[in-house]
Amino acid sequence: MTVLRPLAFALAVLVSLLAIADVVFAATFPSAPRLSENFSSAFVRLELARLRAQPPETIVLGDSVLWGYDVSARESVPALLERRGIRAANFAYQGGSPVNTYATLRAILASGVRPASVVFNVNQKTFNAADSAYSVVHPSMWELARPLFSSGDARLVTTPDDAQTLDARLDRTIARYWQLYAMRADLREALFGDVDAGHALDALLEGVTGAGARRRAAHRPKPSDFEGTYDLTPLDDSNVSAHFLKRTIALLAAERIPAIAILTPTNHTLLHAYVDGPEYAANLAYVRRSLARGGIVVIDADRAFGPDDFFDNDHLTAAASARLATRVARELARR
């Protein structure tokens, strides 16, 4: 008994400190220029709450091309739009796809944030059923968007196998009541600029030894790396990405939100053997038609960039991102 009382008191002190820390943490956690790889749904909620207070002119949705893969956050298209005087929020993320774009848009609108316009990209590779993001929504975004999906739409989404394990349920329950725990991935990213301290230390050592730079210099994407990346089967409504692209178009029309869709820049020199044919052109035309029918302005950047503008099949260098941002800014200014 003499041991239990002080122990209970110590636990009460611990819980009180955690509760105070949680309030301070949520109030002071900084906004991020873009979503990290492992962003949490708690972080998205926090960002949306801030945007409700100060709605952005434009929300950018899509995949790693607009997120700014292999370029700094300052060199991503949304950040470059900001520099051109357009208040843009970057809600694109790595592994985006039409179903992810739709889920994010639903979550944003449901939170009460209403942007003056939306910019998103449509990447031809995501119409391939073999693409990792074809029918998979980022788990944190899925947590927010799942209640907003009709049962028919939800059936098209592939949910992770481990979503209902005891571990996953416990994790969700704790995260519901404990903000610091829920946002641990975002906190680590903010502190270390990486997924965790171990990876940050690795990156630091690679920087010191030059191993990272040597590996990047040796990494030269070959055409054969992309065999099977693009599926040239004619698109129709049975394609999950085509289905959710149309859902996005319909939602934007219903909400009367003007939108610009970018047909993702594609490295045709690198991918020539796999994409330069009438089937690819027909699928691109299908997407363009679907967007235009929904009243969405299309920036066709599919062939707008040369081989030196890419890191790989579709990710743009900083200079090319700046050119794309200029084009988007010009289109936004017209509206």
Binding site: L14, L18, A21, E37, N38, S40, S64, Y69, Q94, G95, D131, S132, A133, V136, H138, P139, P160, D162, L180, Y181, R184, A185, L187, R188, L191, V195, D196, A197, G198, H199, P221, D225, F226, D312, N313, H315
Partner: peptide, 20 residues
């Protein structure tokens, strides 16, 4: 507890995507 959360290894990489 805070140190364990901050310094713990990432176990949240549940979203697998392919980038080249």
């Amino acid at each position: 507890v805070v140190a364990a959360i901050v310094l713990g290894p990432s176990s949240e990489s549940r979203f697998i995507y392919t980038d080249f």
